[in-house]
C-alpha cells in the first residue's frame, strides 16, 4: 500500500513521515507537493508537521487553500484515511475537516517535550491496531496546541466518541499537570464524524524507533496498513463500537 505525504512550504516533518512509512514500516511512500492536484494513487494521506506558510495569520490558515487541499477534501469525503500531525492537524481544523480550533498554549510558550497520550477509541484507521486505554509516549513540539471548541460542539464530540487521544500521566490519568498546553478536556487528538480523518498534536512519526526514545508512534501507521488490508477504514460499526455496546 502507499502513503502520500503532502508537502507544504514550511513543512518540516515530511521527511520524518516518509522515513517512518518507507524505511521503518517498509511501505510505499511518496511526497505530494501542495501545488499538485494528483494524489498519485495514495491509499493513506499524511499532512505532516511544520510551519506551513510560516504560521502567518493563524496556523494552517493559508495552507488549507493550497491546490492539493481540494483533492484531500474529496479523498476524505469518500472515506479515505487522512492523518494530520501537529501543523497537519491545525490545517485539518482550519479546513473544517475536524471541528474546533487551536489557541496559543496556555503558557504562551512553544513546548518541546515527551508526553503520554491515551488511546480513547480504536475504531479509526489510525488506532485499529492499538488497545483502548493504551498509553503511548511520543514528542510534542508546538506553540498553538491549546485545543478549543464551544461547549455544544465539545459535548457532541464526546458523545460521538470523536476524542481519539488525551494527554495523560504515564499511568493513564488525564490530570491537569499532564496537559502540556491547556487543551480542553485534555484533548490531544480527534477524528471527524465519519472517523476516517484523524488529527493529533503529538508526533507519532518521530516515535517509530526505540533508538529515538520511543517506538510507540508506530502503532498509528501500522493501524493504517491494517485498515487498508481489512478495507475497514471509516466504518462507523468498527470493533470498538461493538465492544462498548
Amino acid at each position: 500500500m502507499k502513503f502520500g505525504i503532502v508537502v507544504f512550504p514550511g513543512s518540516n516533518c515530511d521527511h520524518d513521515a516518509y522515513h517512518a512509512t518507507k524505511h521503518v514500516l517498509g511501505q510505499d511512500a511518496e511526497f505530494l507537493w501542495h501545488k499538485d492536484t494528483d494524489l498519485k494513487g495514495a491509499d493513506v494521506l499524511i499532512l505532516p508537521g511544520g510551519f506551513s506558510y510560516g504560521d502567518y495569520l493563524r496556523t494552517g490558515a493559508i495552507a488549507r487553500f493550497s491546490p492539493i487541499m481540494s483533492e484531500v477534501q474529496t479523498f476524505a469525503a469518500k472515506g479515505g484515511p487522512v492523518l494530520g500531525v501537529c501543523n497537519g492537524f491545525q490545517i485539518l481544523l482550519e479546513a473544517g475537516l475536524i471541528p474546533g480550533a487551536m489557541l496559543r498554549n496556555r503558557t504562551v510558550k512553544f513546548v518541546c517535550a515527551q508526553v503520554n497520550i491515551r488511546v480513547e477509541q480504536t475504531d479509526t484507521p489510525f488506532t485499529c491496531a492499538a488497545r483502548r486505554g493504551q498509553v503511548l509516549r511520543m514528542p510534542i513540539a508546538h506553540g498553538e496546541g491549546n485545543y478549543f471548541a464551544s461547549p455544544d460542539v465539545l459535548a457532541k464530540l464526546e458523545a460521538n466518541r470523536q476524542v481519539i487521544f488525551r494527554y495523560v500521566t504515564p499511568e493513564g490519568e488525564p490530570t491537569d499537570e499532564a496537559n502540556p498546553n491547556g487543551s480542553i478536556n485534555s484533548i490531544a487528538g480527534l477524528c471527524n464524524n465519519a472517523r476516517n480523518v484523524v488529527g493529533l498534536m503529538p508526533h507519532p512519526e518521530r516515535a517509530c524507533e526505540s533508538s529515538l526514545g520511543s517506538a510507540d508512534g508506530l502503532v498509528l501507521l501500522e493501524s493504517a496498513v491494517q485498515s487498508i488490508k481489512d478495507g475497514a477504514f471509516g466504518r462507523p460499526d468498527a470493533p470498538a463500537l461493538l465492544e462498548s455496546a
Binding site: L103, R104, V108, F148
Partner: peptide, 14 residues
C-alpha cells in the same frame, strides 16, 4: 478579536 468566551493566553500575559 477572540470571542469573549475564548481564553486569550497572550492577553492574560500582557
Amino acid at each position: 478579536t477572540l470571542k469573549p468566551s475564548v481564553f486569550d493566553p497572550q492577553g492574560k500575559t500582557i
